[in-house]
Write a protein that binds this DNA or RNA. Structure first.
Lengths: 203, 203, 203, 203
DNA sequence: TATGAATGAGTTTTCATTCAT
DNA sequence: GATGAATGAAAACTCATTCAT
């Protein structure tokens, strides 16, 4: 029984691969990396424990695969959004992209936030690099806006960190059937971010 | 050799209690609740594995004790800060209190943020209640300020959530010997928060 | 790329058979029967795991095939050498044949020595029989020489065992590029054997 | 139920330690290191699987402990025997000591012979060093005897290797209730060794 | 002949916890 | 309060083998 392609985890036609990734994502989100057993993942994926290892050489690799996909997708969205226009426009777009990712791929965003620490070596480096690149992208926009006078904030770099934290945290409480639509949420946070930066646009 | 009392974990004179709590806090922060074994805690605390159970009936109780202390302390600080003055003054004080806690008790703040999920039942309820009370305190101030016209933000409740998230996230990156002093950090975030709320005071 | 026919493992033109036997021989020699997985063998043989089972019905059969070939070859060489002449001449020839086998087919000799124990039933019986036949061949020569007065040793049967052990052990340390050539090694051990038997010829 | 102290494995009074070592020794001898499971060892030792790990941190350490004890004991016996007298006397004594060890501690001798390969790193180095020291001790005596004219063999160093191999192999077939007593076996092999060396004494 | 996917039983090792002292 | 020994359950991972194609 195939579930709808989620964008991050597409059905590759390769046996249980997608089912395993989906099961792992849900389990890691619900019970944490160390709180999840490979048995549970296998069970949820509808396959046997040992078959997991035909797809991923270790539990860590399974986490890494998820976090890399999440990190890459998030970075790609943010970078696209950071492409053109004034600092104000770009920041608005980036925040919307971030919130968009955090709500569309809420589980992945959640797991990326809380389970990176369990990656090691090269895998960790790669995921952390993507995360840092997101921050750097926001920081650059903030710096540009501060330089151009669009933003009045006296501490551009730290402000970028605050904005990213604010956006990321949405994944921890967002509920699809909540009071606010994804779009409303994105708009709201774009406004928070610009206000935080003391942007002219809100004057 | 006793380490300096940390405020949260005071030496009670009751044998290894403080050492155990400290060891657990550090381990949980470094490797997560499920990534930490009681053996490691015992070893770091300088006592035997079985002796742990003379102080705490289970690993879960050990976590609960830490999180309750952290939650209580944080709530108490925030409530104290929320006591008097205009909404602007109270918000400023609350943000400073929050940042103060997150930097003074960084490990506890970190563990409170990421390991609450492993509490169950009554213990979880109690800790979550403290966390919610912090949010409610901020939300009330924001609502007051919005009502009085001090804050221009059109979404007071969500803004409170954004502010708390922003403050909490400081614990994830703060380094005692970093560029900014704890006080500077607090000031900076107070400004971010007021700006986010579109406060008159920054006009 | 085919490796040179080794005598024991000839290329039969039957797909991967020779490659599998060679890979198994090397792996068993390096890591032992129980330390070697079928996966490793398949990988080294350049084929798939499941294809192994098209050639050998089980891991045990793979070992049996190797050990039978080794045992048969060794026995055949020893028997040929034991054919004619005086006891002294036959013993000299047999020791040279043994050392010849142990150095030419070092891996096979090594595996035959240390992994027979993992054979079971009929397969084990057959290999052990070949091994015993080698000993019996040597023992017969020694007995003949003792009877004829060529050898002065007072314990002919046990002496045969000592000689075979001495020859077999060469496989455990021989290195093709070592100090002694294969021929020199054979000569040396022939002399050890005759001396051990207190042969007239050395008087 | 305590079994008689074996010399190598003495009862230390520390719980199941001796029982575990004995069980492991027997199992490794019977089924090989990789053919033995920790479960079997635990079962034979009369304790639980997990309790094994309170005594030995890994299966490899268990093997190492056995092989180190065996290697140390063997080396110590051989060195004691190599102490005084003519080369002929010392060689005679050393061979008797070697056979003595191989028959008294047959299982340990057997396991030392066939399972060293599964040791790694420092542990392997140490055991191999003991084994090499035994060979070196014999080689020195042979060299002395060759120099003094007591032994006529033209290849002293390799002869030492042959003698050690011959003695070690006794452990592979010796049976306590066999035709020859331990003493007779030792005498016999001493004679083989001296004959092999073309010793004057046998002239 | 050849393969990729799959599996059940088994491996070593770790864990939180208990108990006798 | 403190300990060393012990345990049952479960963890991650491996294995020889099978099956559909």
């Amino acid at each position: 029984m195939r579930r709808r392609a989620s964008g991050l985890i597409r059905d590759t036609g390769r046996g249980h691969e997608a089912a395993i990734l989906r099961a792992a994502l849900e389990a890691f989100a619900a019970k944490g990396f160390n709180g999840t057993s490979m048995r549970e993942v296998a069970h949820s994926a509808g396959t046997s424990l040992s078959n997991l290892y035909n797809y991923f050489p270790s539990k860590g690799h399974l986490l890494a695969e998820l976090l890399q996909r999440a990190g890459d997708e998030q970075l790609s969205r943010v970078r696209d959004a950071a492409a053109g226009g004034s600092a104000t426009e770009r920041l608005d777009a980036v925040v919307r992209a971030h919130i968009g990712f955090s709500t569309e791929h809420q589980l992945a965003a959640l797991v990326a936030l809380s389970e990176v620490r369990y990656l090691v070596g090269e895998q960790r480096t790669r995921v952390v690099r993507a995360r840092d690149a997101v921050l750097a992208t926001v920081a650059r926009i903030v710096a540009d806006g501060a330089a151009s006078g669009e933003f009045g904030t006296p501490h551009p770099h730290d402000a970028a960190r605050a904005i990213v934290a604010m956006c990321s945290s949405v994944a921890t409480w967002y509920r699809p059937r909540g009071r606010l639509s994804r779009k409303a949420l994105a708009e709201q946070h774009a406004r928070y971010a610009l206000a935080l930066l003391e942007a002219d646009a809100l004057g």
